[in-house]
Structure formats: structure tokens, C-alpha cells
């Protein structure tokens, strides 16, 4: 027995939900970033799985999209973490609940 496409999709869904959990539940800015990265990675897994189980393997579109999304995720992580550091310098906190100066 070999795993079907469904199995991969369920794993990717689980990963996405865990990322969502991290992004929604944790109050630390870095965790929110970790959650977003995990959700992006789950999407990558979907792209690769659909490419592998689909009928056409050439050109490798799924692989290409996954590669580009990895690059974009890296850029996002760099800017996001830089923002975390900048915010920390300014407010001396990384808890997103306490960053509420603009609240009316």
C-alpha cells in the first residue's frame, strides 16, 4: 500500500492548522511569525504533492512555485524579524497584546 494524495493533503492540513494555532494563540511576535512560516510550508507541501500526483510532471510547475515561495518566505522572515527587533527597541516588549497605542 502506498500513501494516496489524500494522506499528503491531510498532513498538510494538519500542519496548516498547527501554524494557525500558533499564529492565533501565542502572544509573542516571534511565535506568530513561526506560525505563518508553518502555514506557508504547508502550502508548499500541497504544491509538491499535487505536482507529484498530477498527470504532467514536465515542466515542474509545482516545484517551481514551491521554490519561489521558499524564497519569498525567507524574505518575509527576514523583514518580519527585523520588525520584531525594531518594535522591541521602541516599546521594550514583544507581546503583541501590549502594542496597542493606536487603539481608539
Amino acid at each position: 500500500m502506498t500513501p494516496t494524495l489524500q494522506a499528503f493533503l491531510i498532513v498538510s492540513t494538519a500542519l496548516f492548522s498547527i501554524g494557525l494555532l500558533a499564529a492565533l494563540s501565542r502572544r509573542h511576535a516571534i511565535f506568530i511569525l513561526i506560525g505563518i512560516e508553518m502555514m506557508l510550508a504547508a502550502a508548499n507541501l500541497n504544491f509538491i504533492a499535487f505536482w507529484r500526483f498530477g498527470p504532467h510532471h514536465q515542466p515542474p510547475i509545482g516545484v517551481m512555485i514551491a521554490l519561489f515561495s521558499i524564497a519569498i518566505a525567507a524574505a518575509e522572515a527576514a523583514v518580519g524579524l527585523a520588525m520584531v527587533i525594531a518594535v522591541y527597541r521602541h516599546y521594550r516588549t514583544t507581546n503583541v497584546d501590549q502594542l496597542d497605542q493606536l487603539r481608539g
Partner: peptide, 10 residues
């Protein structure tokens, strides 16, 4: 802080 509200959504 751990916001339990995220769990049901996830």
C-alpha cells in the same frame, strides 16, 4: 499568554 480562543478555530 496563551489565547485559548485560537484552539477551536484551528
Amino acid at each position: 499568554g496563551f489565547n485559548w480562543g485560537g484552539v477551536p478555530i484551528a
